[in-house]
Write a protein that binds this DNA or RNA. Structure first.
Length: 382
DNA sequence: TCTGGGGTCCTAGGACCC
DNA sequence: TCTGGGGTCCTAGGACCC
């Protein structure tokens, strides 16, 4: 038997901003793109619970968030406060929370940092299957973590405890915010059955749509399907989902994740047309160059910080057109480019440009569509 | 009301080799 | 005289997650 915990910070970015800006305390707060009075480009990153009451949530277009806020204002409610994403600050807080986890849990408890605002931990079990811990013990640990985060950071977190990562993660979401949900092994199936199929990590809009056509909305409904039927439907993911629907998951915690690629992409404030105008060409080329600078800088920083890789072998370019169609082009180089190579950045810029040039051309861009986004990524890190 | 930016993983087809 | 089977690498696209 395993005992796994999942810690999930509550509306992390927005909560940090609310904490750091006392004048916004209690107000709806939206962290994300600049709304530019309703004409902004981009989406909501995080909304606090007051903003969610207006219908504002993560991934919502910022224009729509603005409209919701305006609608509330016209009803005499406080409008939302819109703030940009200060990733450096959030990463710092994230690091301190990681330290709280480590010090609270002690040395022999495995921790997996899953993202800037999520982490798993697992209580050690003995080879025979007996357990050094218990669900009661896990509950005390979770309460201690939550209390310490509240005292030291002034933030709330939700924690789920279960027999595996899957159940722990779904449990942490079950009673947000400031929740603590414990699901014992024998209760896992009953816990999942009434839930919407979308609660299973890995089931997104497309899979949901496939299920809808079969009149399936809940986990209980989906359990009607045999493993073979799910495999026909979803390929390799089918058997995995078959087990997840039954609360089964043996994925181990991974203490140290290493990057497999490093990239950056940028949406233009206004689409850049394909013209012969020098200014437009300059915008495209200088954007590519600055993407390359950033990617290379971050790649170097990773290497310097002791990553297991020290070179890249592939370069990928992403182009998104005004109509949102997206194309990618990858080149795998004959030999890896080392971080120490004095021409590494030059190579990156040259290859980026080489991959991009055809998109200015009728062959790769017959409609002469304007560019919405450019992206650059180094892959195949070795 | 048009749809960010950082990623991971999977699929499928073609080239190429034995 | 029309076509095998296994394996690897590469490329493009898409689903999904936070």
């Amino acid at each position: 038997m395993r005992i796994v915990g999942h810690l999930d910070m509550d509306s992390f970015f927005a909560s940090i901003e609310e904490r750091d800006n006392p004048r916004f305390r209690g107000r709806p707060i939206v962290v994300g793109a600049d709304p530019e009075n309703g004409r902004g480009r981009g989406v909501v990153s995080t909304a606090n619970y007051a903003a969610r009451a207006y219908g504002i949530r993560s991934a919502l277009p910022i224009t729509k968030a603005w409209a919701f806020s305006e609608a509330a204002r016209k009803k005499g409610l406080p409008p939302a406060v819109f703030l940009g994403v200060n990733m450096e600050k959030y990463a710092e807080v994230s690091g301190r929370i990681r330290e709280i986890l480590r010090s609270t849990l002690g040395g022999n408890i495995l921790i997996e940092v899953a993202s800037v605002d999520e982490a798993y931990f697992e209580l050690p079990s003995l080879p025979g299957g007996a357990h050094t811990g218990s669900y009661e013990g896990a509950k005390a640990i979770a309460e201690n973590i939550k209390r310490t985060i509240r005292e030291r950071e002034g933030l709330t977190a939700s924690i789920g405890i279960g027999p595996n990562k899957l159940i722990a993660k779904i449990a942490s979401d079950a009673q947000k915010p400031d929740g603590l949900t414990i699901v014992r092994e024998g209760d896992a199936e009953a816990f999942l059955e009434p839930m919407n199929i979308r609660k299973i990590p890995g089931v997104g809009p497309k899979t949901e749509e496939q299920f809808k056509r079969l009149r399936i909305t809940t986990v209980r409904d989906a359990k009607r399907l045999t493993e073979a039927a799910l495999t026909d439907m979803l390929g390799k993911w089918g058997p995995e989902l078959y087990r997840k629907l039954r609360g089964l998951d043996d994925a181990p915690l991974v203490a140290e994740r290493e990057a497999k690629s490093i990239g950056r992409h940028e949406t233009f404030a206004h689409d850049v047309p394909v013209t012969d105008r020098v200014a437009d060409r300059k915008t495209l080329e200088s954007t590519l160059a600055s993407l390359a600078d950033d990617v290379y800088e971050r790649f170097l920083a990773e290497v310097a910080a002791g990553a297991s890789f020290s070179s890249f072998r592939a370069i990928a370019l992403t182009v998104r057109f005004a109509d949102f169609t997206t194309k990618s082009r990858v080149v795998t180089l004959p030999a890896p480019v080392a971080a120490s190579d004095p021409h590494a950045l030059e190579t990156l810029k040259f290859q980026a440009l080489r991959l991009f040039m055809p998109f200015l051309d009728r062959r790769e861009n017959p409609g002469r569509k304007a560019f919405r986004l450019l992206g650059l990524r180094v892959e195949h890190l070795v």
